[in-house]
Every structure is written in structure tokens, then in C-alpha cells.
Amino acid sequence: MEKELNKILSSFQGKSNELIPALQQIQEELGYLPGDAMLYAAEFLNVPESTVFGVASFYAQFRFTPVGKNMIMVCKGTACHVKGAEKVLDEISRQVGIEDGETSADMQYTLESVACIGCCALAPCITINSEVHGRLNAKSIEKIFKRKKAEEKTNE
């Protein structure tokens, strides 16, 4: 782990104000912030461990658990809310069998609702691994996940 982290942070100078970009970089590479990585960052940037955790837990971007292969983000922006984001979340939750904020046991899916992905004209919308799916309804959601599951099967 230490070797890997050393490499990830190689472009940083070790100044305390680099904390947020450094954590972003770690998450970019590892997918989340493992405890050891945060301890390493604290030492590397010479800031108290409590500060690292304080900052990491403050910002919505950072996560402390690994995510599934498919990251589903359900937009809950105002336009999406008005056009039924709640129903979209419920339907997806039914399709993949997990609740908002959870990761499936087989590490295939992580479901998360987010503030706004800025595709308001396509409301209600979601992203699956940064691909946007817009103007959704119960039917189109079912279709998306049927296809996803079929893809998984062929990949196996």
C-alpha cells in the first residue's frame, strides 16, 4: 500500500494546503479512501490525522468504502425532483435490490442519490459510470437494467 500511495502522491510537494487535491487523487486511483491511505496522507502532508478525517468527512465527494463496478448516481436536483426523481430512485432500488447509499454484496452496483448532475433538460436523469441516461420512467429504467444484467451474464 505504502509504495502505491507514494506513487499516487508523487506529484505533490507535501504542503498542508494540498490536502484536498491529494485526497482526490487517492480516491481517483483507489476508488475510495482507505483508512491507511488517510494516515499516510496525514504524514505526507504533515497535518494531524484528525484534520485529514475532518476534511474527508466534510466533503460529499469522499467515500470511505469501496464502490461497486457500476456506480449509479440518481440526480435529485430540483428539475429532476419535480419530474419524479423519487420514483426513479425507488424503481432502480427495486431493479438492483439495494437502497440509496448501499453497495450490492457482489460488488456489482453502488446506488447513490446526488444533488444535481446538471442535465436538467433531460430530467429525470441518472448516470451509470458517468454515462447519462435521461427522460426516464419505470419502463426505460427496467430496460436499462435488463440490458446491464444481460451484459454481465455474457461477460461471465
Binding site: 498542508s16 494546503n17 494540498e18 490536502l19 484536498i20 487535491p21 485526497l23 482526490q24 502532508l45 497535518v47 484534520t51 475532518g54 476534511v55 466534510f58 466533503y59 460529499a60 465527494q61 469522499f62 444533488a115
Partner: peptide, 25 residues
């Protein structure tokens, strides 16, 4: 460029400054 890490309050100027300094916003 400084990339924000997802906190609505950082739109407030003093919170944004704290964030660039590497602190909680």
C-alpha cells in the same frame, strides 16, 4: 484550477477560501 470536493456551503466566499487552504469549508 482548484477542484471543489462537493460542499454547497463552499459557494460562500470565506468557506471557499478555507477549502482552497485545505480545510473544512
Amino acid at each position: 484550477i482548484f477542484q471543489g470536493a462537493g460542499a454547497f456551503v463552499c459557494g460562500e466566499e470565506t468557506a471557499l477560501i478555507a477549502s482552497i487552504e485545505g480545510k473544512r469549508g
